[in-house]
């Protein structure tokens, strides 16, 4: 029934010092649809691909605004993300109430990281089956953090997680140097292009299946969906097609 004797629970090390249950939880992240995040000097952007279970059903929410200064994007078990996001909302409000200050992103990320670690060291618990990108602006400027089921958290310049996200990461690595100086609009376009790169051939980004989350210095975090992103989709991919067209000409 099991692949080996060491993968029954999250309190057993394998002889190589691995914890299989945690590694399997990371697989759950890869089952989720892709999300991308990028930061510049002034902005933090999230972009997500939404999936619907069937034609007539609604799309699964991928971006959750937490406080006015930040939000998260998720890949994996949405219900686990809801538990974590509720916790984050609570902690964020507590910070505003007790100190009258927006919670620093490094701090809230560390909090959920610590919570997730507990789930990997105690019998009867399971690791969270969700990966998160946490993006927003605090007193130290714009930030992007990645959260993994293992409890690992890292601050990133850009990041992509979820199904086929390797393609998105490849795009991000190629354009890494441009992000810091990018304007808000350029950053959104980069995020959309990275997202597009990880789609399978037969799929496209549409108003229905794409979500954006944008925040900046002096700009509250806000989610954009549907008609609001039509313009960005149009301007981003027209140009991409043109470029594609040109390069094809060069090839012939």
């Amino acid at each position: 029934m099991f692949r080996n004797n060491y993968d029954n629970d999250s309190v057993t090390f394998s002889p190589q010092g691995r914890i299989f249950q945690v590694e399997y939880a990371q697989e759950a992240v890869k089952q989720g649809s892709v999300v991308v995040g990028i930061v510049s000097k002034t902005h933090a952007v999230l972009a997500a691909l939404k999936r619907n279970a069937e034609e007539l059903s609604s799309y699964q929410k991928k971006i959750i605004p937490i406080d006015t200064h930040y939000g998260i994007a998720l890949a994996g078990l949405a219900s686990d993300a809801r538990v974590l996001s509720n916790f984050m909302k609570q902690q964020s409000l507590a910070s505003r109430l007790t100190y009258d200050r927006p919670i620093p992103l490094a701090q809230i990320t560390a909090r959920i990281g610590d919570r997730a670690q507990t789930n990997t060291q105690q019998y009867g618990k399971r690791p969270y089956g969700v990966g998160l990108l946490i993006a927003g602006v605090d007193a130290k400027g714009p930030h992007l953090f990645e959260f993994q089921p293992s409890g690992v958290t890292q601050e990133m310049i850009a990041c992509g997680i979820g199904a086929r996200s390797q393609m998105a990461r490849t795009y991000l690595e190629r354009n890494l140097d441009e992000f810091e100086g990018s304007t808000r609009e350029e950053l959104i376009k980069h995020a959309l292009r990275a997202l597009k790169d990880s789609l399978s051939q037969d799929k496209e980004l549409t108003m229905e299946n794409t979500s954006l989350g944008v925040s900046g210095v002096e700009e509250d975090f806000r989610m954009y969906e549907g008609q609001e992103i039509a313009n960005w989709l149009e301007t981003t991919f027209e140009r991409a097609e043109e470029e594609g067209g040109e390069s094809m000409e060069v090839d012939t």
Binding site: N5, Y6, T12, F13, G17
Partner: peptide, 22 residues
């Protein structure tokens, strides 16, 4: 070596040794 806190017949706690591997 499958459970923490269990000694092997030669007096080792394997789970701790595996943790060292990490």
């Amino acid at each position: 070596d499958l459970s923490n806190s269990v000694f092997s017949p030669d007096g080792r706690n394997f789970q701790v040794e595996y943790a060292v591997k990490a």
